[in-house]
């Protein structure tokens, strides 16, 4: 099973990278782009076959290491 994990800064926390990209997009003429948020994407293979157990495992990975839940939120999908 493959886990695809997205980690981003929580809404409301200033994302200076997102702001810089938003500004660059605007300069390039993409006027409709707004609220740009930059995050991390982590992909990993899991030996676990049971989907519920795999979900619990990935959630634990996110809570313990992949995201810092003081400043970041995460979501993932299993395939």
């Amino acid at each position: 099973m493959k886990a695809k994990i997205h980690v981003t800064l929580k809404q409301g926390i200033l994302d200076p990278q997102g702001k810089a990209i938003e500004h660059a997009l605007e300069t390039l003429g993409f006027k409709s782009a707004g609220n740009v948020r930059v995050g991390k994407y982590v992909e990993l293979d899991l030996a676990e076959k049971d989907k519920a157990k795999a979900e619990a495992e990935v959630k634990a990975m996110c809570e313990k290491l992949l995201a810092n839940t003081i400043i970041e939120e995460y979501r993932f999908e299993l395939q």
Binding site: L9, I13, L14, P16, Q17, A20, N68, I70
Partner: peptide, 16 residues
């Protein structure tokens, strides 16, 4: 901070 021995977290510098 990451170890939880102190409260809070660090973000990228405002200026990047």
């Amino acid at each position: 901070l990451e170890a939880g021995l102190l409260p809070g977290a660090m973000l990228r510098n405002r200026s990047l």
